[in-house]
Nucleic acid binder design. Sequence first.
DNA 1: ATATCCCATATTGTATCCAATGTCCACGTT
DNA 2: AACGTGGACATTGGATACAATATGGGATAT
Lengths: 222, 222
Amino acid sequence: MKLKAVDISRTASASTIVFDVLRKAIIEGEIPEGAPLRQDEIANMFNTSRIPVREAISRLEEHGLIKTQRYKGAVVAGLSADEAAEVFDLRALLEPAILRDAVPEMSKECLAEARNHCMAFSTSPNPMEWGNLNRVFHKTLYGASNLRYFIEVTDNAMDRVDRYIRAQLVMSNGMERAEIEHLAILEACEAGDADRASLLLRDHIQGAKLSLLEHFPNAPTS
Amino acid sequence: MKLKAVDISRTASASTIVFDVLRKAIIEGEIPEGAPLRQDEIANMFNTSRIPVREAISRLEEHGLIKTQRYKGAVVAGLSADEAAEVFDLRALLEPAILRDAVPEMSKECLAEARNHCMAFSTSPNPMEWGNLNRVFHKTLYGASNLRYFIEVTDNAMDRVDRYIRAQLVMSNGMERAEIEHLAILEACEAGDADRASLLLRDHIQGAKLSLLEHFPNAPTS
DNA sequence: ATATCCCATATTGTATCCAATGTCCACGTT
DNA sequence: AACGTGGACATTGGATACAATATGGGATAT
């Protein structure tokens, strides 16, 4: 007997769903920085009580995406230019290490998928998609690595700056440059040159940081 | 008017207290790996309802300290040897960067405090204290750095392996070596030699990793 | 004796209700 | 008019009650 088995024990609970949706909305910038998250309002949107919402909010705070104050509620956390730069610096340390570990493990399928995402990235007409495709491209390459904790930390870092990356891809010619650099990284991976790939990746991230700082939203949220 | 003002808005909520206590109990190994966390039991211990307990559990899971399954409850998360090694590798990347940033900023007071902790570490007769003193020593040095996100991530990493470090300090002669290496790092900091300090720190962490792997608890928790 | 099914119990997930606190505006005082 | 005050309302924190699911043991059939 062969079924497409689903692990029912992992069926999403209400709080998980709320968490996932809110996280996505926040990292994509749909809910702007400083915007308050009203428990009642959210509970109504999901047709639940406030209990699962509060658990989702707890997790989001631990995740670093929101700030809460007792009896005052939660607001979407914002980053100063310095803080955003620091997140990029962390990425520039971790992601090259992940990629170096991943390159020897990459299958043909993995590389092909990465190339697809890379192409989709360059040809997509929809700016809102760029952010997703950019992230998917990176994740596909990292997926071959066994450094799962590195990847987890990196994902968290990405969550914090995803909004800014999206904005920066639209402004300036961030798209073009990202596209070129992605291709170079991909080719290094295909050539099996882990060192070159990781160096290119580091420069790619540092370049994105500098580009972001130039166009950073002027209001440094305290 | 000058009062010793307290920020009342930051008074700890029940869920915060529960989170803090559980976190401490877990990272110190007081609650062993795989042990279930019963909501009712914990709620009774704190004389609250299960609601704050559940929020604490949500945060602990996001923090990576426990694993939960729907309708089955939460258990303390354990690390395999490989996973623990990976956490150390991450620390070995981040903490030297923090220290390099911190050295030029260290005040006399900061260095004096670090030296005190270092001494307390070597003279404390209580093995259970070693883990705390070890961590306080590191934190004191890092405190001068402005890389708050790096420090946050590092703290999280420490939380995951704290238990193992404590065990390893007791076994073998981990204490002696840690003491010697701490002193060397401290002296490099006092001399203002950021490069040397960060290199020593990296070796210190990698050494701790190797020592840990030798004595790793034999049951690789899946 | 063994296996299977069913139900009692334990435990988690969620809804509803109450308490505690923050916010804001009307009101009065000067 | 400016300022301080008090109280109504909004919102969050927590407790209790109920629903959904897992677990384990005993009855029954073979």
